[in-house]
Design a protein around this nucleic acid. Structure first.
Length: 481
DNA sequence: TTTTGAGTTGTTCGA
DNA sequence: GTCGAACAACTCAAA
């Protein structure tokens, strides 16, 4: 009579690095079997387009945080390196597991990897159980009346409103049964996710604390201070009026169901509440677009724009990326991105419009840069929104809508607070010229200690002329078709 | 099948 | 200084 060692279940973490509202975790905890949580760092997966370098930094800290949370439940997080399938097979052999539990990943490359892994495991007689948790609505099922995907946001939103509240979030279990012995795990450090020489992420901790606990705190703080007045405040980059939840959401440290329901019953104006939920719905819309159009990051969604001749100008691109265009709001945005791995939404539109319409550089180059440098880089939102700005995307901005970086600056950063924070060499300039230093009288520049062309660049292009040229280039498409 | 109404985030120009 | 129109049609989604 030998005591039967109970076989374990594997809990496979991916883009759901949280305990709260995690259906896979709850299911594993209820199985009555020991649970082996694992994260597999897969180089192929990475190439499939999800993570850039800034998110590698985030991932490192997020995995450490998840391990801490799991230890509080009496468990821990195993880390493996390599292709998912052999690692899972190895873990199944070692633990006797016949079942792997996880949550869906919704971007097409990841989803296709997951399908292949699951099919291969099935051949070994291992079951995969997958739950919804990344999106509020299933892209395969939320369709227009004629059965196609939504291509316009407003009807998409109306359908969301009509389809009732998403399910309630579920609480994390109190404990998780550990296996009698733990299989081998890599050291987190061995994944090499942190930057070295130079450590370009050194300022990230000024603003970011990766991990679920920080995400939930941020949600609370936003509900207390930010939601009231969100609708107008969200447009001003110097104001703390946005939730800053995007990087947590991108990594699955917080669930969209948790966020959606946390806003319910708040004593704020309906406009603020709806506006915030609409932003969550935009994230959904982008994922649905990506689901139905997997080429979203690579091809013009609307092929009518394919004949556009983009400029290939490495020098101009580098000046844009480094925040040296000579337009303060653009430069502030690009430097915020480099410093903090983040950029305010309003400024993303301004900087993106500048790259595409003022410099006429291909939106894909901008998309790639953002994907590499944003801690909240998301394969759906990033592609869909770059295409929106370029006018090539779904529900895109009309081609004649070209952001004027001076006016946008003066409208949304009237005192230049945001510019002064990220472009300190302009800090001493009067409000009147903070967004147009190239028009400042010599005396004002001297007083502020600015030598244009030396301490701060001259404008890389004349916006007025660039605008005219962009209108002509986009307008020419019409004549051809 | 046809019709109808509508479409995230802007700028410029002229009255 | 303020305000409305023009900037383009085109396609989507639903009735």
């Amino acid at each position: 009579m030998s005591a039967q060692v109970p076989s374990a279940v594997l809990l496979w973490f991916r883009k759901d690095l949280r305990l709260d509202d995690n259906l896979a975790l709850v299911s594993a905890a209820r199985s009555g079997q020991p649970v082996v949580p694992v994260y597999i760092w897969d180089a192929d997966d990475r190439q499939a387009g999800s993570l850039g370098s800034a998110q590698d930094w985030w991932l490192h800290h997020s995995l450490a945080a998840l391990d801490d949370r799991l230890r509080a439940l009496g468990s821990r997080l195993l880390i493996r390196k390599g292709k998912a399938l052999p690692q899972l097979q190895d873990l199944c052999r070692q633990t006797g597991a016949r079942k792997i539990i996880c949550n869906h990943r919704c971007d097409p490359p990841a989803a296709s990897i997951d399908r292949a892994v699951s099919a291969a495991l099935a051949e070994d007689g291992i079951e995969t159980e997958s739950h919804a948790g990344q999106l509020l609505h299933d892209p395969a099922r939320l369709l227009t009346g004629s059965g196609g995907p939504y291509r316009v946001y407003t009807p998409f939103w109306k359908t969301l409103e009509r389809s009732g509240e998403p399910r309630e979030p579920v609480e994390a279990p109190r404990n998780l049964e550990a296996p009698s012995s733990w299989p081998r795990s890599e050291m987190l450090e061995s994944l090499g996710l942190l930057p070295r020489r130079p450590d370009w992420a050194s300022a990230f901790p000024e603003v970011w604390t990766p991990g679920e606990a920080a995400a939930l705190e941020k949600l609370d703080a936003f509900l207390e201070d930010g939601l009231d007045g969100y609708e107008t405040g969200r447009d001003f980059p110097a104001r703390p009026a946005t939730s800053l939840l995007s990087p947590h959401l991108a990594m699955g440290e917080i669930s969209p169901y948790r966020i959606w329901h946390a806003t319910r019953g708040r004593n704020v104006s309906g406009g603020d509440l709806v506006r915030f939920r609409k932003e969550l719905a935009w994230r959904e819309f982008c994922y649905h677009l990506l689901f139905h159009f997997p080429d979203l990051a690579d091809k013009n969604w609307n092929s009518r724009f394919d004949p556009l001749r983009w400029h290939s100008d490495e020098t101009a691109f580098r000046r844009w990326a480094e925040g040296k265009t000579g337009y303060p709001i653009v430069d502030a945005g690009m430097r915020q991105l480099w410093r903090h791995g983040f950029m305010h939404n309003r400024v993303r539109m301004i900087t993106a419009s500048f790259l595409v319409k003022d410099l006429m550089i291909d939106w894909r180059e901008g998309e790639r840069w953002f994907r590499e440098t944003l801690v909240d880089a998301d394969p759906a939102s990033n592609s869909a929104n770059w295409q929106w700005v370029a006018g090539t995307g779904a529900d895109a901005s009309p081609f004649f809508r070209i952001f004027n970086p001076i006016l946008q600056g003066e409208k949304f950063d009237p005192e230049g607070t945001y510019v002064r924070q990220f472009v300190p060499e302009l800090a001493g300039l009067d409000d009147k010229y903070i967004h147009r230093p190239f028009e400042a009288p010599a005396k004002a520049l001297e007083k502020a200690g600015i030598a244009l062309g030396e301490t701060y660049p001259q404008p890389i292009v004349d916006h007025g002329k660039a605008r005219t040229a962009a209108l002509a280039a986009y307008g020419a498409l019409k004549d051809q078709s």
